[in-house]
Amino acid sequence: MSWLNATALGCAAAALLATDVAAAEFGRPATRDEIALWNIDVRPDGTGLPPGSGTAARGQQVFEENCVACHGERGQGGIADRLTGGQGTLASDHPVKTVGSYWPYATSLFDYVRRAMPYPAPQTLSDDDYYAVVAYILNLNEIVASDTVLDRARLPAIKMPNRNGFWPDPEFKLIRNSRQP
């Protein structure tokens, strides 16, 4: 058998196997508990925030144990994104996009940190520790006082410096509204 014929035969066998695999209906519906593990999004208005609370003092400890290796002391100078500074630079030739200069919602910061950090073991901290780290990062950016306690009621109320720096794309608004009944 030539190489070309063997290759064609192999491809045909793979296609038949793929069809059989698809028809076998692997898997099962996810349970409510399994869905809850992945359904952790937090919206700008605070919908989805978990119970818990944290302070900047506790957040500093958690940050030093889990974040400083990548983000540097006080959120600057590490190998990962800078978290502090940059206020007033967005309209300049060299904008510095940080939590304090760019992010429009404190709840989005919580959502991202809880979903993706600490690297490489996301979602391994307690909700209290995530609130604390967010409090510490916001405090480093002079957005909240060092004695502020963050929780599901207080976090959505924080007005970020760039809160009004984003606006909807008119085309997106037209598309979105055209789909609504």
Score class of each variant (00 low, 15 high):
residue 38 W to E: 08
residue 178 S to Y: 07
residue 121 A to N: 14
residue 158 I to G: 01
residue 16 L to I: 07
residue 167 W to A: 13
residue 115 R to M: 13
residue 171 E to H: 12
residue 94 H to E: 13
residue 106 A to K: 06
residue 61 Q to P: 00
residue 38 W to R: 12
residue 91 A to D: 15
residue 27 G to R: 04
residue 176 R to E: 06
residue 129 D to Y: 14
residue 101 S to I: 03
residue 59 G to V: 13
residue 7 T to A: 14
residue 98 T to Y: 04
residue 117 M to R: 13
residue 41 D to H: 15
residue 68 V to N: 00
residue 142 E to G: 02
residue 152 R to S: 14
residue 73 E to V: 04
residue 120 P to I: 00
residue 2 S to P: 15
residue 53 S to K: 10
residue 71 H to E: 14
residue 21 V to M: 15
residue 139 N to F: 00
residue 64 E to H: 05
residue 60 Q to M: 04
residue 25 E to L: 02
residue 17 L to Q: 11
residue 89 T to N: 09
residue 107 T to I: 10
residue 152 R to A: 15
residue 108 S to I: 08
residue 157 A to P: 02
residue 129 D to E: 15
residue 12 A to K: 03
residue 45 D to C: 01
residue 127 D to Q: 07
residue 18 A to M: 12
residue 14 A to D: 09
residue 160 M to T: 08
residue 96 V to H: 02
residue 78 G to V: 10
residue 85 G to V: 01
residue 107 T to W: 07
residue 16 L to Y: 08
residue 181 P to A: 10
residue 10 G to K: 10
residue 27 G to E: 04
residue 99 V to P: 05
residue 158 I to M: 01
residue 138 L to W: 05
residue 103 W to S: 01
residue 54 G to A: 03
residue 21 V to S: 08
residue 31 T to P: 02
residue 143 I to M: 03
residue 116 A to K: 15
residue 25 E to P: 02
residue 163 R to Y: 09
residue 159 K to S: 07
residue 21 V to I: 15
residue 160 M to P: 05
residue 148 T to E: 02
residue 101 S to H: 09
residue 15 A to V: 15
residue 1 M to H: 12
residue 66 N to V: 00
residue 118 P to A: 11
residue 163 R to V: 10
residue 21 V to D: 04
residue 82 R to E: 13
residue 150 L to I: 04
residue 44 P to D: 11
residue 12 A to V: 05
residue 15 A to K: 12
residue 76 Q to R: 12
residue 96 V to Q: 08
residue 131 Y to K: 07
residue 97 K to E: 12
residue 139 N to C: 12
residue 161 P to S: 15
residue 168 P to I: 12
residue 36 A to P: 07
residue 113 V to I: 14
residue 140 L to V: 08
residue 66 N to C: 09
residue 29 P to A: 14
residue 35 I to V: 10
residue 88 G to S: 14
residue 109 L to M: 07
residue 78 G to H: 11
residue 17 L to E: 09
residue 46 G to D: 04
residue 30 A to L: 10
residue 39 N to I: 05
residue 173 K to L: 13
residue 69 A to I: 12
residue 171 E to Q: 12
residue 48 G to R: 06
residue 3 W to L: 08
residue 30 A to D: 09
residue 69 A to Q: 08
residue 112 Y to W: 11
